[in-house]
Simulated assay, not measured.
Amino acid sequence: MKLGLQLGYWGAGMPPNAAEMVVAADEAGYDAVFTAESWGSDVFTPLAWWGSATRRVRLGTAVAQLSARTPTAAAMAALTLDHLSGGRAVLGLGVSGPQVVEGWYGAPFGKPLARTREYVDIVRKVLAREAPVTSDGPHYPLPYTGPGADGLGRPLRAITHPLRADVPVWLGAEGPKNVALAAEIADGWIAVYYSEKLADQYNSWLDEGFARPGARRSRADFEVAANVSVTVTDDPAAAYDRHRPVIALYAGGMGAEQKNFHADLFRRMGYGEVVDEVTALFRAGRKAEAAAAVPDELVAETAIIGTAEQVRAQVGQWGDRGVTMLMVGCQDAEQVRAVAAVLAQN
Rank of each mutant, 00 (worst) to 15 (best):
P141C: 11
T116K: 01
V57A: 06
V100Q: 02
T70P: 02
A191D: 00
V95F: 10
G94D: 05
G153V: 10
V123L: 04
G255Q: 05
R55N: 11
F44K: 07
A24Q: 05
E223G: 10
G92T: 02
A18S: 14
V323E: 02
W170C: 10
Q345N: 06
R286C: 00
W39P: 05
A131C: 03
R242Q: 11
L3T: 08
W50R: 15
E102M: 07
D241Q: 15
S218H: 03
A280K: 05
L7I: 08
V179E: 06
L206M: 02
T233V: 10
T80F: 05
A263V: 11
I159Q: 13
L198R: 12
L206C: 00
V126I: 13
P176R: 12
D82E: 02
G40P: 02
F222L: 06
P168V: 03
R212T: 08
D121S: 14
A182I: 07
N346K: 01
V315W: 00
G87D: 01
W50Q: 14
A186D: 11
D264T: 12
A114W: 01
V299G: 00
V323L: 03
Y119C: 10
D166K: 07
D82V: 00
D42A: 09
V90C: 04
P236S: 12
D241Y: 11
K287V: 01
A64R: 09
H161D: 13
K197A: 13
G13P: 03
E118P: 12
G97A: 09
G92S: 01
L81T: 09
R217D: 02
T233A: 05
G146P: 11
Q317R: 14
A248E: 14
R216H: 06
M21E: 13
W104I: 12
G319W: 07
S38V: 13
I305L: 02
V33E: 12
G214V: 10
E37S: 08
R58Y: 04
P98R: 15
T324M: 03
P141D: 10
Y119W: 08
A149W: 14
T72N: 04
Q317G: 02
T35N: 11
